[in-house]
Amino acid sequence: MTATHRPLAGPPVTQWHRPLLLLAIAMAILVVVSIGGMIVDDRVLTGLPIWAKSVKFALSTLIYAVTWAWLIAQLTRWRRFAWWAGTVAAVGLGVELVIIVVQIARGTTSHFNFTTPLNAALWNTMGASIIGVWTATVLVAAALFLNPTADRARTSAIRAGAVLSVIGAALGMLMTSPTSAQMASDSMIIGAHTVGLADGGPGLPILGWSTVGGDLRVPHFLGMHALQVIPLVLIALELAARRFPVLGSVQKRRAISLVVTATYGALLAVLTWQALRGQSVVHPDSQTGLALGGIALAATVSVVLVLRARLTFAAPVAIGGAR
């Protein structure tokens, strides 16, 4: 039986969470302004064009804001509670980006910077806003668990993405501890992205992820955006179901979604382990290679077993219907 599915839908954009949408618009503008800054401003900070940081943070925040604005609009229970939590997140992210831009204009770093009372105050303010955003995200994610959709595969994908996103955001806390070199030298920079080396060494273009040492930004970034990746995989499965009838079963799509979640979580764990060992993401050793190979093999075998299993085909359900 071939199923026909509509892509993930929901209320019209006009009904999405407005503060987060306004934040998304501001971030889109900041991306354009920051790209212009990279063109006209030749300053370099920690090995990258000084405006590259605001490009990265604005893009990431834009994606976050749009995703959560859409999800909050679909809630039928605890919606007002989630609306306020989303507003707290929007304000906190706005504060964080303002500080980043201020520090770029001043020609100094925003993160881990205690070199002057002003820099310390700005970093502490940013840290407080980050904690507020993370807490608000946890609360909205909890609301998602109280609002299952009529399609169990979609429910699983959204819940899994939310949980991994919260975990990925929490991994950022690993960067705030002083390194052994900082403690030995009484440095006024407390915390680092890079493990085993000082920040600012050779890195990937734009991203800046270290190519010579471990970098905690890798698992942090991967984890935060699980909320987009896992539901997107489900969308791909629903679209593929039009051509491959075996994917017409909600049970099969849900099972594959769970495999993707387990694979994503395992990859997140390996990348965190790799970074903490001071190893660059682009230069994995044999141990990391074996771990990644094991994850790939387990994922492949699991998907094959799911596709070969005899599961009951379920009638398609379009998101935007009963919730």
Rank of each mutant, 00 (worst) to 15 (best):
H5A: 03
R6H: 00
R6L: 11
P7A: 03
P7Y: 07
L8S: 01
T14N: 02
T14Y: 03
W16D: 01
W16H: 03
R18K: 11
P19E: 13
L21N: 02
A24W: 05
I25T: 11
A26R: 09
A28E: 03
R43D: 08
V44L: 07
P49E: 08
V55P: 01
A58C: 10
S60Y: 01
S60F: 03
T61N: 07
T61A: 13
L62R: 01
L62I: 04
I63K: 00
I63A: 11
V66W: 03
A69V: 08
I72G: 02
I72F: 04
I72C: 01
L75A: 08
R77Q: 09
R80Q: 10
T87I: 13
A90W: 05
V91H: 05
G94R: 12
I99S: 01
I99M: 08
I99F: 09
V101L: 06
I104W: 05
R106L: 13
G107V: 07
H111F: 09
F112L: 07
F114H: 09
T115M: 12
T116V: 13
P117T: 15
L118R: 03
L122N: 02
N124H: 14
N124I: 14
G127H: 09
I130W: 04
G132K: 11
T135L: 15
T135K: 03
V138Y: 09
V140H: 06
A141L: 11
A143E: 06
A143V: 13
L144V: 15
L146P: 00
L146E: 00
R152E: 10
A153T: 05
A153I: 10
A153C: 12
I158G: 01
V163G: 08
S165Q: 11
G168T: 15
A169N: 07
A170P: 04
L171T: 13
G172Y: 11
L174T: 06
T176N: 08
S177H: 06
T179R: 08
A192V: 14
H193C: 08
T194S: 03
V195P: 01
V195Q: 01
L197G: 01
G200M: 08
L207C: 10
D215L: 13
L216E: 04
P219T: 04
H220G: 09
F221E: 04
G223A: 14
H225K: 11
A226H: 11
L227G: 10
Q228F: 14
Q228K: 05
V233D: 00
I235G: 00
A236W: 12
L237M: 14
A240Y: 04
R242C: 01
R242Q: 05
R243T: 06
R253G: 02
T261N: 02
T263R: 09
Y264P: 05
Y264S: 06
A266M: 13
L267T: 10
A275D: 12
V281L: 07
H283R: 06
D285V: 07
S286H: 10
Q287H: 05
L292M: 15
G294I: 11
I295H: 01
L297P: 00
A298Q: 09
T300S: 15
T300G: 14
V304K: 01
L307M: 14
F313N: 02
I319H: 10
G320L: 15
G321W: 10
A322G: 09
R323D: 13
